[in-house]
């Protein structure tokens, strides 16, 4: 499990280009670097639930991102906080 403060990168991956899927990781955050704020629990993988398939439990994290860094605009210090599953995070 990732502890708070761990620096992570969101996988830069586009399963949408490979066929039907349901992805809960927003496009705009893929490839971005952020910091784990806390572990939110374990939840069934929505990518499987969306197709009524058996779904493994995944660790879910609140991850904080520097907001201006994502868009190249915005106020320094502002942040985005997003719920992301372990399968989308890689430690940096």
């Amino acid at each position: 499990m990732l502890s708070p403060g761990t620096h992570v990168r969101v996988r830069f991956d586009w399963p949408e280009t490979r066929g039907p899927c349901h992805i809960r990781t927003p496009h705009f955050i893929r490839g971005a670097e952020g910091v784990v704020e806390r572990h939110l629990g374990r939840f069934p993988n929505a990518e499987d639930l969306a197709f009524a398939r058996p779904a493994a439990l995944l660790d879910l994290y609140h991850v904080r991102f520097d907001q201006p860094a994502i868009w190249g605009e915005g106020r320094a210090g502002d942040a985005l906080v997003i719920e992301l599953a372990e399968t989308w995070l890689e430690p940096t």
Partner: peptide, 15 residues
Amino acid sequence: PDTMRLRVVDSTADY
């Protein structure tokens, strides 16, 4: 205010 930081929370998953 400029002195206040903004945190935008995107409800992408289970909470």
